[in-house]
């Protein structure tokens, strides 16, 4: 078996896994209870949240501890517009949410990326994220600490008719499609020219600077894309959960995508997605173990992170390579 065939078989297995996951998400409302369907919707949004975060973390090599601020900016913008100007199309609310997130990323990026990198960048983004959290909690228009409750699911005008997404599982399928499109966009960025340049920046920013590349500018671009897509994910979640509270802007919410990346593997595009699914599965499985649930989830995560430095996807990939190599050696021995 040639090296090309090895790669091909690994890719084929990965594609099959992605297809299987997509099928599970797509068929979930047919066989699962409402609670699980609701959770799956949240997980889909969190996958977009984590993958967009990983554009900064895994690809560009910068840790933002304030990512939840973008998520909250998108969610609150869409929900607030939905109340203030309900006659506007829902897609405008989503786009506005994404735009506000991107603008916020631009502003934070201008401050945080000018001189800071590494831990200083992380602390600066954490501080600015907490500022957003505090502002939301003090804002009467945004419901202060109680948040915005009773957010309606939209009716979309399709020109030839309307589609009421509040009926049945329609909004779930809308989320599925929207998250799929956003993940497609992130895939394109990750695997395209920009993605390769960002990966090079992570590996050796100084060398890239010598090539005449404006390093800060490209980091800002990555930050804006990451912030914008995260905000779009936030805008999508508001009508799904039908409530948003300042908790989604809190630093502990910013820790979620970091956790997903470490769990699933930050070096792979789908790593954070796997992390988000595994984390949700752990939480769901232990939800009735009141008082010990957090201990079990935390302990399990600790074991995975310590035992699998490359995350679940990295480790599985390593195992697959070893198995293929062993199989090839056995085949050679038999042939001999």
């Amino acid at each position: 078996m040639s090296r090309g065939q090895n790669t091909s078989s690994t890719t084929s297995a990965a594609n099959a896994a992605i297809l299987a996951a997509a099928l599970v998400f797509a068929t979930l409302p047919l066989w699962a209870d409402k609670g699980l369907v609701f959770l799956a919707g949240i997980v889909m949004v969190q996958i977009v949240f984590a993958v967009s975060f990983n554009l900064m973390f895994g690809l560009t090599g910068l840790v933002s501890f304030g990512q939840a601020a973008f998520f909250a900016a998108g969610a609150y913008t869409a929900a607030w517009l939905g109340r203030a100007v309900p006659e506007l199309p829902f897609l405008i609310f989503c786009l506005a949410g994404g735009l506000v997130g991107a603008l916020l990323a631009l502003l934070i990026g201008v401050v945080a990326l000018r001189r800071a990198s590494g831990i200083y960048f992380a602390i600066l983004t954490l501080a600015l994220g907490q500022l957003v959290y505090t502002l939301i909690g003090k804002s009467d228009a945004l419901g202060r600490e109680d948040g915005l409750v009773g957010i309606k699911r939209p009716v979309i005008d399709l020109f030839v008719g309307t589609l009421d997404l509040s009926i049945g599982d329609r909004y779930y399928y809308f989320l599925l499609v929207a998250c799929g499109i956003l993940l497609g966009l992130l895939w394109w960025v990750w695997h395209g020219q920009l993605g390769r340049l960002l990966a090079a920046l992570r590996q050796d920013a100084e060398r890239i600077r010598f090539f005449g590349v404006n390093v800060r500018r490209y980091r800002e671009i990555a930050f804006i894309i990451s912030g914008g897509v995260t905000a779009l994910a936030g805008a999508l979640v508001a009508p799904w959960s039908q409530i948003i509270t300042p908790a989604i802007a809190h630093w502990s919410y910013s820790a979620l995508p970091i956790l997903f990346c470490l769990l699933g593997g930050a070096s792979r595009f789908w790593g954070p997605a796997v992390g988000a699914i595994v984390f949700a599965g752990l939480e769901y499985a232990t939800r009735t173990m009141v008082g010990v649930s957090e201990l079990i989830v935390g302990g399990a995560l600790l074991v995975v992170v310590l035992a699998m430095p490359g995350g679940i996807v990295g480790t599985l990939s390593l195992l697959a390579r070893k198995l293929t190599k062993n199989g090839k050696e056995r085949l050679n021995e038999q042939s001999a």
Binding site: D33, G35, L36, V149, T245, R287
Partner: peptide, 10 residues
């Protein structure tokens, strides 16, 4: 509130 609504749906 978010955990509560998820639990109620479940």
């Amino acid at each position: 509130p978010d955990v509560g609504t998820a639990a109620a749906r479940e």
